[in-house]
C-alpha cells in the first residue's frame, strides 16, 4: 500500500488511496494482497452523470459535436435508406441547391428582410411597453396589483387566435403581422421582466434610500442596473416566440416574407425549399440570441462573476 508522505498534496494522496481501494474491491486482482479496504459513500458517478459536476473540455467538445451532427447524420441515413419518399424528405444536396438558388435570385434576402423587419418592429414595440411596465410592476406592489391579474389572464389566450380579429381590424398590410407579434410577446415579456425586478434584493433598495436616494434615483441607479441582465434574458427567450408568430402571420396573409415562401413551397411540394427556409429561420434566431447575449455580457459583465 502507499504510505502518506508528509508534504505531498492532499489531493494526490486521496487519488492514490482511492485508486488502490478500487483495485482491492475489484476482487479479481485480490492476489495483490493488502488489507481489504472499506469504501465509503457507494459508487462514484462518472463525469457524465455527476450531478452539477464539471465535465472535461474534451467531453464537452464531443457532446457539442454529437448534438449538432446527430440530426444531420440521421437525416442523411434516413434519406439514403430509401424508407421515405424523396418528395417528403429532400437530400442535403437538394436543400443546399435550393438555398443557393434563393440566394442568387435575391429572393431570400428580400424575404428575410421582410420577416426580420416585422419581428424587429413588433418585438421592439413589445419591449418598449414591457420594460417600463415590468419595472413598475416589479417595484411597486400597487402597480403589480393593478396589472398582474389582467395580464395573467390575457396571456393564456393564444396569440394566434387573435389573428382573424387583427385582420378584420387592421386589414391585410403590415399592421396585423406586427400587432400579432406585439400581442404574442408583450405579456410574457412584461411578467418575466417584473419577475427579474422582484429579484433585486429589498435590502439593496432600502440601503439606497438611507443613502439619500429617492424613487427616481433608486430606479435609475439600483433597480435598472440590477435587473438589466434579467431583462435581456427575458427578451432572448421571447424573441423565439416572435419568430414563431411571424411565420404564422405570413402563412395567413402576406405577399412576402419567409412564411409566405414556406406556404408557396408547400403548394408545389418543394420540400427542399421548406427545409432551407427552416434552416434560415433557425440561423436568424441563433444569431439574434448570441447578439443579445453579447450585449448583456457587455452591459453587465458583473452578472457572470
Amino acid at each position: 500500500m502507499t504510505s502518506l508522505r508528509p508534504g505531498q498534496p492532499v489531493f494526490d494522496r486521496l487519488e492514490v488511496t482511492s485508486r488502490s481501494t478500487a483495485v482491492v474491491t475489484d476482487g479479481a486482482s485480490g492476489a495483490r494482497g493488502g488489507p481489504r479496504a472499506r469504501v465509503l459513500g457507494g459508487r462514484r458517478q462518472p463525469g457524465f452523470w455527476r450531478m452539477r459536476g464539471e465535465i472535461s473540455p474534451r467531453l464537452n467538445v464531443v457532446l457539442v459535436a454529437i448534438s449538432l451532427a446527430a440530426p444531420l447524420v440521421a437525416w442523411v441515413l434516413l434519406r439514403a435508406s430509401g424508407l421515405v419518399n424523396p418528395i417528403f424528405l429532400p437530400s442535403v444536396n437538394e436543400v443546399v441547391h435550393s438555398a443557393k438558388d434563393m440566394v442568387t435570385s435575391g429572393q431570400l434576402a428580400g424575404d428575410t428582410w421582410a420577416s426580420s423587419r416585422r419581428v424587429f418592429i413588433g418585438f421592439g414595440l413589445a419591449i418598449l411597453i414591457a420594460v417600463p411596465l415590468g419595472l413598475a410592476m416589479g417595484s411597486f406592489r400597487s402597480i403589480n396589483a393593478l396589472f398582474e391579474p389582467v395580464i395573467g389572464f390575457v396571456r393564456y389566450m393564444p396569440a394566434t387566435a387573435f389573428l382573424p380579429l387583427l385582420l378584420i381590424w387592421l386589414g391585410l398590410g403590415e399592421g396585423p403581422k406586427v400587432a400579432l407579434i406585439v400581442i404574442g410577446t408583450v405579456f410574457f415579456n412584461t411578467l418575466m421582466i417584473a419577475n427579474a425586478v422582484w429579484q433585486v434584493p429589498s435590502e439593496l433598495i432600502r440601503v439606497a434610500f438611507t443613502l439619500g436616494g429617492g424613487n427616481v434615483s433608486v430606479f435609475r441607479k439600483v433597480i435598472f442596473p440590477y435587473a438589466l441582465p434579467g431583462i435581456i434574458d427575458a427578451a432572448r427567450v421571447n424573441l423565439a416566440a416572435a419568430w414563431n408568430l411571424i411565420v404564422v402571420a405570413e402563412l395567413v396573409a402576406a405577399d412576402n416574407g419567409l412564411g409566405v415562401r414556406i406556404f408557396r413551397a408547400q403548394r408545389f411540394l418543394r420540400t427542399e425549399e421548406i427545409f432551407a427556409l427552416l434552416l434560415v429561420i433557425g440561423v436568424l434566431g441563433v444569431t439574434s440570441d448570441v447578439a443579445l447575449r453579447l450585449v448583456r455580457n457587455r452591459l453587465s459583465p458583473w452578472s457572470q462573476e
Binding site: 435590502e203 439593496l204 432600502r206 438611507t210 442596473p225 459583465p301
Partner: peptide
C-alpha cells in the same frame, strides 16, 4: 422616513455588484 443622517448596514452586505 429614510435619510442620509441615519446609515444602515445589513447582515447581507447589500453592495452594488456592478
Amino acid at each position: 422616513g429614510p435619510g442620509p443622517d441615519r446609515g444602515i448596514v445589513f447582515q447581507s452586505y447589500s453592495l452594488f455588484p456592478w
